[in-house]
Design a protein around this nucleic acid. Sequence first.
DNA 1: ACCTGAACACCGTTCAAGT
DNA 2: ACCTGAACACCGTTCAAGT
Lengths: 243, 243
Amino acid sequence: MPARAPRRPRRATHSREQIVETAIAVLDREGAAGLTLRGLAAELGGGLGSVYWYVEGKRELMELCCDVLFGRAVDLGVGDAEFSSPPMDVDLDGLPEAVQHGAVGVRRLAMALFGELMAHPWLAAQSQLVGAGRVEGMRFWDALGRQLAVMGLSPQQQFIGSTAVIGYVMGVSAEMMSQDAHADPGTSKEEQLRTFADSWQGPEYEGLDWLRSIGEEFAAHDDTEQFAGGLDLLVTGLVHRAV
Amino acid sequence: MPARAPRRPRRATHSREQIVETAIAVLDREGAAGLTLRGLAAELGGGLGSVYWYVEGKRELMELCCDVLFGRAVDLGVGDAEFSSPPMDVDLDGLPEAVQHGAVGVRRLAMALFGELMAHPWLAAQSQLVGAGRVEGMRFWDALGRQLAVMGLSPQQQFIGSTAVIGYVMGVSAEMMSQDAHADPGTSKEEQLRTFADSWQGPEYEGLDWLRSIGEEFAAHDDTEQFAGGLDLLVTGLVHRAV
DNA sequence: ACCTGAACACCGTTCAAGT
DNA sequence: ACCTGAACACCGTTCAAGT
């Protein structure tokens, strides 16, 4: 064997944005438990420690990942791009135009955020990071609050309403995404729903007659319609306060 | 020094209930990050491995802890014990009695769950475990669904409404509890709120005029009133669907 | 049947040393 | 200024060995 010069390690060069984007890709592929700083460094082609030059630690990295996606939700939710969502089930007939506009704006922002949460199933469970004061998250809150102000709600109702909508979006999404995570992979969505619904007929749920009665509704439901339906309950409440 | 017989380790004796109760105590005291199986075993006076005789692993242990507290929320929410909650801000005048009863029942259950989430600040962030099919969690869902059935809502609206309420409760609570966790300890609640509100005037939030306008509302708010206010938006929506 | 603790295979974080 | 990787102080989980 000919002698070899010892491999000099190549120095990889990073940026904060690149690290965050790569982390999001890993999270999308492997889930929250699948992101490790070692794995991330390997994916970036560099050493473990260099990540720490750009982020304070794993927690800040997660916050930055979440914030980027909140930013995309605002951009989509305040823009005039078309994106599909179920028809709104709120009676706006005869209401002042400002109330109608505000209600539509609230719904649009919430649906845009829901879209990001569906596209990145690990994200909804990170709601603990919402209050971290990251700028894109705050931009989302600001955009939502503006719509409630447009509706003519009092400052107190703007505050309560905006936090209620964000809480609803994050909470319902976390519910839905965790259900997907619990299901074993390889089965279709329909089979998963059916398996859940059938399990509720088991003896451990004896006496929970309502639960048993709702199985068919669950087996036939669509996540986006379910989300939009609950959102419209909130929007109905907001409209009711505005007039 | 007199010779000593080697210490024979005492065999500790456990039960599943004792392990879960102790884990809840540790979680309350140290938070979710503070619960380790080694620490738990030490607290129980036994060895690390024995915990595995009773629970499959840390994940199941967390699920069991959450489920116990959901159980307490149902018991309180369906019983007739008095517990304080802000006055309901939903107009029920002239509505059928069944609708009124159902609406009150929904609110009662949601407030009872919120109480548990406030008493155990680590709990709200575990919403990923809600869909795990644990029996007390399912009992809570069943109790809530019954109230929506009482209101006369369609099965679809029962499904959408019940998941919306649970999602709202978990999501808003996770928001609130994480805010407390981010604040540095040693300062009063009022000071914490003031610090947050003031930080929104900083240059990184330039252009977020609504955010800046809402600071005073935030600084003066009360968590329970905020929660109840948002909940009543949802209940208003439900009542609107029922008539 | 139930308990023990060493051993294993990981983690996140730090930091002296490099370029 | 930015990168490297060994070292440290933990984790959860497994399992052969005990009682």
